[in-house]
């Protein structure tokens, strides 16, 4: 029973972190049609920025604010200014994906050069907030789940209840038609980069605080899982990313108990393949499979 509760609680916790990251990743792809493979490096940058600016503070609210701002700025610069310049010159979707790999490498090597050979650490945060059937969940972990839930509600309200959200959904579906309606796709894309970066930053600092230890490659490992969750849900579909994150989180934790902890990281990909065999477009996306990687 304790093990089952652990799987569910920490599956939800993992899902919370993944959801924040994968919704940002998926939303940005949906609106800009750019496969941003530098997402993990942006995430790592945010942990570093938060670590430097706050003087290694582990205050979750301050971290979230700094992380969100850092992520928004870095993402905007990379997406709107750098990648935007390539898009304006007619670069193909594949070329842009390669550019994002280059950007990821530049970020990582820069962080490595600054960091040196030693990793960084936050002070331990293992305060117990609630205990369910003998399994305790820390205050920071509860906060992460709460923040993720709030972020998902905010994204939902943004997409459904605001003009900006409508513009984003419209841009994601049909750029030409959106433009003919008087909506600026450029401005909408800029906002998407900002929002995506903010979510990426929040995910990063929550991850950094929870793991307590980070290096210039911390974002790489979780990015792979974030991408899997986004694709499971249907790439470009924020709601799909939420469901994808939940599934990936629960399946990963469950596989550690039922199969072997060794295969925990592979479980997300087995799930991905299984889902895509049944629904090639992902769980939520109706149009994803028909979209092409073009500017």
């Amino acid at each position: 029973m304790t093990l089952l509760v652990t799987i569910v609680l920490f599956g939800i916790y993992s899902a919370a972190l993944l959801a924040i990251g994968s919704v940002g990743f998926s939303m940005q792809f949906g609106v800009t049609n750019v496969l941003n493979l530098a997402y993990g490096s942006i995430l790592t940058s945010c942990i570093f920025v938060e670590y430097w600016i706050t003087g290694h503070s582990s205050n979750v609210w301050l971290a979230m604010l700094v992380g969100a701002l850092a992520g928004a700025v870095i993402s905007f610069v990379i997406g709107h200014l750098v990648i935007g310049a390539f898009l304006n010159r007619g670069a193909s979707g594949f070329s842009i994906a390669m550019v994002t790999i280059g950007i990821a490498l530049m970020i990582e090597f820069t962080l490595e050069a600054i960091q040196g050979p030693y990793i960084n650490t936050f002070s331990a945060n293992v305060s117990s907030a609630i205990t369910i059937s003998g399994v305790s969940l820390g205050g920071e972990q509860l906060a992460a789940i709460g923040i993720a839930a709030a972020a998902m509600v905010a994204v939902h309200m943004l997409l459904r209840l605001t003009k900006l959200g409508l513009a984003m959904r419209a841009t994601a579906d049909d750029v030409a038609l959106t433009r003919s309606c008087g909506i600026s796709p450029t401005r909408t894309r800029a906002v998407a980069w900002l929002l995506s970066g903010a979510l990426c930053g929040i995910c990063g600092v929550l991850l950094g605080l929870d793991e307590g230890t980070f290096s210039s490659s911390t974002g790489d490992a979780i990015f792979v899982t974030i991408a899997a969750a986004a694709v499971v849900g249907g790439i470009g579909k924020p709601y799909g990313a939420m469901i994808g994150a939940l599934l990936v989180g629960l399946v990963s934790e469950g596989s550690a108990a039922v199969i072997s902890p060794s295969y925990k990281s592979i479980a997300a990909w087995v799930l991905l393949i299984a889902v895509l065999m049944v629904r090639p477009q992902g769980i939520f996306a109706e149009y994803a499979s028909r979209r092409e990687l073009v500017a």
Binding site: F10, V135, D210, A221, I222, E253, P261, K264
Partner: peptide, 10 residues
């Protein structure tokens, strides 16, 4: 255990 996971509570 798989490396680089966000949690190892299970």
């Amino acid at each position: 255990i798989a490396l680089d996971q966000t949690a190892y509570q299970t």
